[in-house]
């Protein structure tokens, strides 16, 4: 077990980031797997499965992601107003997009659940209206660069904590947030405060973006 202790410690949210060695895609994959072992390892580690899809075209990893996420995407689309047949078809499309556009997955900024959500959301918009869907300019890692190892592991953990925080909200507040994400609320109906602890997530994404910008210049 001595080897496991060599893994870079998770860095604090605030303060200077430690200098991380440049790692390749497959190193990042192994590192995430080690972290999953360190943290107990009984829960499925979506990030390393997604990196296996992205970096190794691993169809078994894809099948595991499909079994977990496709039924949730289908439920999400039905809550957002789709009938069962349309939701089935779209959930399949969403999962196929997860494979095809895996280069857009940035584990330093989004958990797999978050990334699946954005694909499902885009599919829902395209289905609901013929209008175009303006997207921000992409900020992505180059082919020879990788995000900090510590960041890769955090986004999935944060989604777990955020899901727990969501479950702890008073029923009325939780229902409002869900309705917003099912596309039921306009911006003038959305409350400015969610009641969710989002500060640390924002700080971490901001740091990841700052590092990306440094690499790009």
């Amino acid at each position: 077990m001595g080897m496991l202790l060599d893994a870079t410690p998770l860095r604090p949210i605030y303060g200077p980031a430690p200098v991380a060695p440049v790692i390749t895609g497959s190193n990042a994959f192994d590192w995430v797997k080690r972290q999953a072992l360190v943290s107990g390892g009984t829960e499925t580690d979506w990030a390393s499965l997604m990196l296996a899809v992205r970096d190794k075209q691993d169809r078994n990893a894809f099948a595991q992601l499909f079994r977990h996420f496709a039924p949730r995407v289908k439920a999400f689309l039905m809550k957002a107003g789709s009938d069962a047949a349309t939701a089935e078809e779209c959930a399949q499309d969403v999962m196929a997009t997860l494979w095809q556009k895996s280069h857009l997955y940035d584990p330093a900024r989004a958990s797999v659940a978050t990334w699946v959500f954005t694909i499902a959301r885009n599919r829902r918009i395209d289905m609901a209206r013929k209008a175009r869907r303006p997207e921000p300019e992409a900020v992505l890692w180059g082919p020879d660069e990788e995000p900090d190892q510590a960041d890769v592991y955090q986004a999935d953990q944060e989604t777990k904590r955020l899901s727990a925080a969501l479950a702890d909200l008073p029923e009325k507040q939780r229902a409002l947030i869900k309705r917003a994400f099912y596309g039921d609320l306009s911006h003038s109906e959305i409350a400015a405060e969610t009641g969710l602890p989002l500060g640390t997530i924002k700080s971490r994404i901001r740091l990841a973006l700052d590092r990306l910008r440094q690499k790009m210049t």
């Binding site: 949730r72 958990s111 699946v116 954005t118 899901s163 947030i177 989002l198």
Partner: peptide, 16 residues
């Protein structure tokens, strides 16, 4: 978007 991810993550499931 991470909140959206948590909404999907904690959603019910409908069998494919």
């Amino acid at each position: 978007e991470a909140v959206g991810g948590a909404v999907v993550d904690s959603a019910d499931t409908v069998a494919m």
